[in-house]
Design a protein around this nucleic acid. Structure first.
Lengths: 160, 160
DNA sequence: TAACAGTAGACAACCTCGTTGTCCTTGTCC
DNA sequence: GGACAAGGACAACGAGGTTGTCTACTGTTA
């Protein structure tokens, strides 16, 4: 097949995009409008223990200001609550609300469904193999999202 | 291994990013500073026949204004020339300059080298298999980049 | 205990890449 | 000719980041 290196990159990108676009669309259908991957990962990070803006920034490899902006959105939509920390007046403690847990659960289900779809097309063993290979190549630091802008996607059409 | 669907997405993203980041860094080392994937793909599209801004926009699934901006950069750096079309006064004909061809060639080499590195780590057959699987999943419309913002990446550190 | 360095958060300005919306010029087709 | 489409330029704006600066609080240290 002799694909080129650039094609390989494109392949990876396309895979990611098709997964994420589908997930976002499905979530929108379920009523969680305009929910971005960034939000999902922020929620995850908060659950995992990032209970302040600065902390979230560190964990998601982003400036604390950027994290604060994300948090502002999540709070405004009711996915996260932010109350002053009684023990440290500088901080505001972040907590994921029940609604936040809902959207996270739904998101998980959506991704699972998408993965299952791929599994049907490729076979269980083959998909597992693909994942294992990718993990080998990428190393195990997949957790770091580390890519400002990676979630930007504003599907629109020009001049209908 | 039982990875989740979201992890799969992350895996794909990480793969893409690690490839592209490395490629950009290497190109910068070779003297093509601040060359973005967008530029690479714009050049490719122009070579492939997109000889006007609107045309480029259509081919790269981006508004003609965005395409025009990209072109402005490419022209300013000497990678693309833009002359009025004698046959149609509305158009400006785009052409990739020798310098543009250079950078494209270099880019190709860099990606090839990166792919070879992965090949060494995974084995020739296994990488081919991975590519084939991805191609199956993604379909054959990989050509469409179709992701505004997908190339945004501004590596920076907060407060050293 | 008083000074001081570091952390949290807020605000403002700015960048990049993309988007609309609008306008003008030029071709094309009936 | 006249309606309409297409190409391009300009301006305004939005999303998601960044830096820089400022204030309030904490914990440590002399």
């Amino acid at each position: 097949m002799a694909r080129s290196g650039a094609d390989l990159a494109l392949l990876l990108l396309s895979g990611f995009r098709s997964l994420v676009d589908a997930a976002m669309a499905e979530l929108a259908d379920r009523g969680y409008d305009d929910f971005r991957p960034t939000h999902e990962f922020a929620l995850r990070a908060i659950i995992a223990g990032a209970d302040s803006a600065s902390d979230l920034g560190r964990r998601t490899a982003v400036s604390k200001q950027a994290a604060a902006k994300t948090i502002a959105v999540l709070v405004q939509r009711g996915y996260v609550s932010s109350e002053p920390d009684p023990a440290d007046a500088r901080r505001k403690r972040l907590e994921v609300t029940p609604l936040g847990l809902d959207v996270l659960r739904e998101g998980e289900a959506v991704f699972e469904e998408l993965r299952a779809r791929w599994e049907r097309r490729l076979g269980v063993a083959e998909l597992a193999r693909l994942e294992a290979d990718l993990a080998t190549l990428v190393g195990d630091d997949v957790v770091r999202v580390d890519a400002p802008g990676w979630a930007a996607h504003h599907p629109t059409e020009e001049a209908p």
